[in-house]
């Protein structure tokens, strides 16, 4: 699965093979302690008994996973049936995150490409322009976004004054609002990796394609896209995965009438429920799911790589 973003390109070489261990050591040591250790701890927690109002009791229990997959009725004593509640929440989150990723790609790719084809000395300025809005706190940006999208907000006023629409479009508290919010939250995470890849693209390839009478769009699809694929994949991962766990945009723009994964898990640790093992178990399911998705991406990519 390393392929996800690491092995796609053709320029994987072994120049620094001997120094490999030293080069990887800082990342390994930081992440083993600060990422893998916490994850391992949560894996253990997910198999422990919950302590009422947060915390765990050190006794083995499958209750958290049972709660995730089986429904035993309101009072917990009906015969178990498959629990669709959490699976539905997961499916909804995947769908929203996927839509946001596609939206980001459709806007982010042309933007990244455009920036990468500007004169060399102004490119960093463009990159700053894309990231500056993110110096402002996400909460403030999302509240302002909400202000813009309101039924009586500036966007609807503008569209109505131009005569494009006669009734305000209702966006707030819809799925579209959530997707727009996620898209807005993570757009630079799509643009920058693609930019980094396109900037390196050898335009002689496009010229060669044009010489062979390929039109521009065929060239884009058959020559450019395969060449910058690692950037596109990296961008998609950086938008999709954080979107899965996001809660601010879904809550503020989507109305929070339906849980997303992020708010569901958050509620287990700092909400009324205070069910740490269940929060840990839901995180483990999420982690497994993301790993599988990355694996499928990697497989497809390496397959495609062999065909080319």
């Amino acid at each position: 699965m390393a392929g996800g973003a690491a092995s796609g390109g053709s320029a994987t070489t072994d120049t620094y093979k001997d120094a490999r261990g030293w080069l990887l050591m800082p990342a390994w040591s930081v992440l083993l302690v600060l990422s893998l250790a916490p994850v391992f701890m949560m894996l253990v927690y997910s198999f422990l008994t919950k302590e009422f109002r947060g915390g765990v009791i050190w006794e083995f229990s499958l209750a958290a996973y049972d709660q995730f997959f089986f429904d035993r009725g309101l009072f917990g004593d009906d015969p178990p049936v498959i629990e669709w509640t959490y699976l539905t929440i997961f499916w909804r989150s995947i769908w929203q995150a996927g839509a946001a990723t596609i939206l980001s790609l459709l806007i982010g790719f042309p933007t990244a490409y455009y920036i990468a084809t500007r004169p060399e000395n102004v490119r960093p300025v463009w990159l700053f322009l894309i990231t500056i809005p993110y110096w402002v706190n996400l909460l403030i940006r999302t509240v302002s976004m909400k202000f813009l999208l309101r039924d009586q907000g500036p966007l609807n006023d503008l569209l109505m004054s131009t005569g494009l629409i006669s009734e305000p479009i209702h966006i707030i508290n819809t799925n579209l609002a959530v997707q727009l919010g996620l898209f807005y939250s993570y757009l630079p995470f799509m643009v920058l990796p693609i930019y980094a890849a396109v900037e390196r693209y050898n335009f002689a390839l496009s010229e060669a394609a044009a010489d062979l009478y390929a039109n521009k769009w065929v060239t884009l699809r058959r020559v450019l896209l395969p060449a910058v694929k690692p950037g596109v994949v990296a961008g998609c991962i950086l938008v999709f995965v954080p979107s899965l766990g996001a809660f601010l945009a879904p809550d503020l723009l989507g109305g929070a009438k339906n849980f997303m994964i992020g708010s569901l898990i958050e509620e287990q640790f700092k909400g009324n429920a205070g069910n740490w093992p269940f929060g840990a178990a839901a995180s483990m399911v999420l982690l497994t799911m993301v790993l599988i998705i990355l694996l499928i991406c990697a497989r497809q990519q390496s397959k495609a790589g062999k065909e080319v």
């Binding site: 039924d151 809550d251 929070a256």
Partner: peptide, 30 residues
């Protein structure tokens, strides 16, 4: 059970759950 049913029914009438901007949604007329 009655509480559960009542809330399910009432949810259909609600636009959103929101604490952070509880004041703003009222003032803006949302």
């Amino acid at each position: 059970k009655a509480l559960n049913a009542m809330l399910q029914e009432a949810k259909g009438h609600w636009a959103s759950f929101n604490s952070d901007t509880a004041k703003e949604v009222l003032v803006s007329g949302d």
